[in-house]
Simulated scan of single mutants.
Amino acid sequence: MLTIRTAHPDELPALTTSPEDDERNAATAAYLAGLLESGCTRPEWCLVAERDGRLIGNVVLWTIPGRTVPMDIVLLEPGDAATGEALLAYAAEQARRLGAQTQGHVLDSPAQAPQFQRDPELREGLLAGAGFTVTRDGCRFLWTASDPMPAQDERLHWRTLAELGEAPFVELLADTFTDTKDSIFQAEIAEHGLRGAARRNVADMLEMNHQPAWYEIGYDAADTPVAISMPARTATSAVIGLVAVARIGRGQGYATSVVARGTRVLVDAGAEEIRGDCDADNIGMSKAFQRAGYRNFANRKMFTRPL
């Protein structure tokens, strides 16, 4: 008989382990330990599937630290198809009970630490069957301390969130959204309008782990605001975060300038590895990462479902 339940304290943080796969077991356990410590998840959000006294699958809910409503599924070990279906159904029920209206999940390829999302066809089939749809087919980029530091753009001077306040960031981001190529931003604009979507994204970035001096607007020689740089930290890595270029600044390489600026800020704060994401169709942003010395280390599909 299959039982879905909250993990016992002695089952954390390892949850489901894979025989003869010590690398995966150690990396995933360390990842979950970090999520628990940072407040991205909670012990009661760590759910396991048990059959005949043996753990055969698990699912873990996630949110931004400080929030009480889970936003996403961060770890999923489906076991087999039937177990995966049961876990996803239970995860939806628990998130709905806590006030969530939607639920997201990401699937990276190739499979790698710390999630080790093997069996991608099984996973995609389970997600589709549980009502998830793809909201972004994206690319992931990586820079490490062994890579050359990207050159800084001397055409721009920068002013921080601490100096400017939030309003200029919202105003400039709304301008950049006019012709955005990002599928997630497009969906948010359709629902909330340009300024509403900009306001929501700035608010989301303010909830990220950051220092006020990290969030900046870049100005050109005429003192015109042309770019936004909002690097931050997640529970597991430094991230370039939000990159935006005003319409008046398009075609001048400022997206690369923002990636370079965010990299410099994060390195000065101690980062040795920095990640960034963008929509696969956003060719300009992909080129900006590559020109700044980042490499496309994985692809990422983002899924969501209504609850």
Rank of each mutant, 00 (worst) to 15 (best):
Ser229Phe: 11
Thr28Asp: 00
Ala227Gln: 03
Thr83Glu: 01
Gly241Cys: 00
Arg291Leu: 08
Asp220Trp: 02
Leu35Ser: 13
Ala280Ile: 04
Glu154Asn: 12
Thr83Asn: 00
Thr135Gln: 12
Pro9Arg: 04
Arg24Trp: 00
Gly66Asp: 08
Pro306Lys: 09
Leu266Gln: 12
Asp147Glu: 06
Arg155Gly: 07
Gly276Ser: 04
Leu126Thr: 06
Glu163Arg: 01
Ile4Gly: 08
Ala246Ile: 05
Gly129Asn: 14
Tyr294Pro: 01
Gly34Gln: 07
Tyr219Gln: 09
Ala86Phe: 04
Lys301Met: 13
Gln101Glu: 12
Ile64His: 14
Thr133Asp: 05
Ala227Lys: 08
Cys40Gln: 01
Gly129Ala: 14
Leu156Arg: 08
Arg140Ala: 13
Gly99Arg: 11
Asp204Cys: 04
Glu124Pro: 04
Ala288Gly: 11
Trp62His: 10
Ala197Gly: 10
Pro13Glu: 01
Cys40Trp: 05
Leu2His: 02
Arg67Met: 06
Leu76Tyr: 14
Ser146Tyr: 02
Ala151Phe: 07
Gln252Glu: 09
Thr63Arg: 15
Gly84Leu: 02
Leu266His: 11
Phe141Ile: 04
Gly284Trp: 00
Asn25Glu: 03
Ser229Tyr: 03
Asp153Gln: 08
Arg200Met: 12
Arg250Cys: 12
Arg200Glu: 08
Tyr219His: 14
Asp182Phe: 02
Leu76Phe: 15
Gly39Cys: 02
Glu50Tyr: 09
Asp204Ile: 07
Ala27Arg: 07
Pro65Ser: 08
Gly284His: 05
Ile64Pro: 02
Ala190Glu: 15
Asp52Lys: 14
Asp277His: 14
